[in-house]
Design a binder for these strands. Structure first.
Length: 573
RNA sequence: GCCACCGUAACUCAGUUGGUAGAGUGCGAAAUUCGUAAUUUCGAAGUCAGCAGUUCGAUCCUGCUCGGUGGCUCCA
């Protein structure tokens, strides 16, 4: 269809992807929405024509001739990279010939239920130094219903988008005068931040971590030593001159933690040393990269560095992995994948520190630890940190983007650069290994993810407002205040809605704000010392003694119980 | 950073084929005193993202800047 509408277009590649396909074209104009619609209509026309799609097998030489004559230089480039002895398959549909491994449907009428979704630029061969091509994304299904369901799901997912819910629930905001990628936590969002920090502190203290604090600014020399200026300068905020010395805002916490380790001499008896901090970092992410809370320029990382001996490594590494699992259980995170990110031999000395043996050795340890711990994981070469292999936990945002939520890395390189050491049993000075870990990732990304994960319906312990007290009329405001104060005295986050609205309206407001509990008080309640309880989604739960109910709330919060989500009418439709 | 698109009240959006704007929600005031998802009336609120150009006149056309969106590239 594109070839018919734009005879000058050069075709490149067009694979299937999850939930659809794309095709990249070299064209000196871009596809507008109107053009996309025209292409879709042309596709429908062609489908009706029932054009046959015929497979041809040719040699690479013949294929080069054919595509050269057609002026399809990108196809020629692809064929030239294929083994010359291989057979090339082409598919011909009317006057159009494409290079394709296949298989294909037998004729165009088989394609009925499709939709072109969007356009974008995309670099040829995914390299930003190459020409930018015009990409069309689309999707196709075997039945009309399946297509409709898919499109409906896309719309539903947009409703859970953390950027939309973040605004509606007043969790965070961005301001032009503050700067892109620099989120401001509103009071509601700050509550979630605080609860996460409490969770982390609780688990880290129990896990034998020591909490530390470090400055946001540091001399450039530290990052020269760590190697970060070498590897990541372009994504650090530019240096500031302070009395003739270059200072940077910190893009990560590791060097500071290394310095804390080094501040006092260590014996093997001190190891493992576990230093934890919710560290604030700044990274100059490219403008096109920013994405709501998921990719920002200021971030607070659930960071910690564990310094241990080789013998302790496996145990420490598994403990960290288990901490991840415990967190995932708390949040009910079930859809994730663990990725073992390895180095690639070709990039040793460039992207990765040039220690081939140490790479293989540490990768082996990590692999063994994962297998021993019974974790499912996928190995991906070329994704490691420059100083060692890592485990990334991948999750997906509501609109389908993949993100690394948490990470657990081995560092065999930087400790020696920092002259970190400990005196071993035999009196020798040795260099410890370092495990970098961030099971809750950053506040920004983790909360962005949680907003979508819960669809804004936070469990009670995370909810910015846990209960709202709704007096039926002015006459019961005094009692309502008494209820509010009683709950607040026990640390509960409670609001009063004493506006002159009808009870139905107040309930509606509370439901829209996704407040867990609504406590309705009128004549009966104020007389009996009770509250009439209504729970989000679940409706009227009846009347209960105030103190009894309060104890139940406190219990629910203490257990960090998950909200069991009921599908609402709008979700199932 | 690259390709494309978008930017109208606090929010969601309508509108002007160039003659300086409107709705709903929210906000403020008054009345209503109410039993489980929307009480009524009145009112305030916008340099139409910013700057420049074209024009008698620009929110509308053009350019640049800023910010956002969909992708690409990148992610210690």
């Amino acid at each position: 269809a594109v070839k018919e509408l734009f005879p000058d277009v050069k075709i490149t590649i067009g694979p299937t992807i999850e939930n659809g396909f794309y095709y990249d074209f070299d064209l000196d104009q871009s596809f507008s929405d109107e053009i996309l619609e025209k292409i879709e209509n042309k596709m429908k026309e062609l489908a009706k024509l029932k054009q046959e799609i015929v497979r041809h097998e040719v040699s690479t030489g013949e294929a080069v001739d054919i595509f050269s004559k057609l002026g399809e230089s990108y196809k020629v480039e692809i064929i030239e990279q294929i083994n010359p002895d291989d057979t090339i398959t082409m598919y011909k549909q009317s006057s159009f010939t494409d290079l394709c491994r296949g298989p294909h449907v037998s004729n165009t009428s088989k394609i009925k239920h499709f939709k072109l979704l969007s356009t974008s630029g995309a670099y040829w061969k995914g390299d930003e130094k190459n020409k930018m091509l015009q990409r069309i994304y689309g999707t196709v299904f075997s039945t009309k219903d399946a297509l409709k369901t898919h499109l409906h799901n896309i719309e539903e997912a947009k409703k859970r988008d953390h950027r939309k819910l973040g605004k509606e629930l007043k969790l965070f905001t961005f301001d032009d005068e503050v700067g892109p990628g620099l989120p401001l936590w509103l009071p509601n969002g700050a509550v979630i931040v605080e609860e996460l920090e409490n969770l982390a502190k609780e688990y880290e203290k129990n896990g034998g971590y020591d909490l530390v604090r470090t400055p946001h600014l540091t001399k450039g020399a530290l990052y020269e030593k760590s190697g970060h200026l070498d590897h990541y300068k372009e994504s650090m905020y530019p240096a500031m001159d302070v009395d003739g010395t270059e200072y940077y805002v910190k893009p990560m916490n590791c060097p500071h933690h290394h310095k804390i380790y080094a501040a006092l001499p260590k014996s093997y008896r001190d190891l493992p040393v576990r230093l934890a901090e919710y560290g604030t970092c700044y990274r100059y992410e490219k403008s096109g990269q920013l994405f709501g809370l998921m990719r920002v320029r200021s971030l607070q990382m659930n960071d910690a560095h564990i310094y241990c001996t080789k013998d302790q490594f496996k145990n420490e590494f598994l403990k960290v992995c288990n901490m991840y699992l415990k967190y995932f259980e708390i949040f009910g995170i079930e859809r994730y994948s663990m990725r073992l990110s390895l180095h690639s031999a070709e990039e040793l000395g460039k992207k990765y520190v040039d220690e081939p043996e140490l790479w293989l050795e540490t990768e082996k340890w990590v692999r063994e630890a994962l297998i021993e711990g019974g974790f499912d994981f996928e190995e991906v070469p070329g994704e490691a940190a420059f100083y060692g292999p890592k485990i990334d936990v991948q999750v997906w945002s509501a609109i389908g983007k993949e993100f690394t939520l948490a990470t657990n890395q081995v560092d065999f390189a930087v400790p020696s650069k920092f002259n970190l050491n400990y005196v071993d049993e035999d009196g020798e000075s040795k260099t410890p290994l370092c495990i970098h870990r961030a099971p809750l990732g950053t506040h920004e990304r983790f909360i962005g993810f949680l907003i979508e994960h819960f669809g804004g319906d936070f469990p009670l312990w995370l909810a910015p407002v846990q209960a709202v007290v709704l007096p039926l009329s002015d006459k019961f405001t005094d009692y309502a205040k008494l209820v509010v104060n009683s709950l607040k005295a026990d640390g509960l986050r409670v609001k009063l809605n004493d506006r002159a609205d009808k009870i139905g309206s107040k309930i509606r407001q509370a439901e829209l704000e996704k407040i867990n509990y609504m406590l309705i008080v009128g004549e009966k309640e104020s007389f009996d010392g009770t509250v009439s309880i209504r729970k989000r989604f679940e409706g009227d739960l009846g009347v209960e003694d105030l103190d009894v109910f309060k104890q139940k709330l406190i219990e629910e919060i203490k257990n960090r119980r998950l909200a069991h989500r009921k599908e609402t009418a709008t979700e199932t439709e």
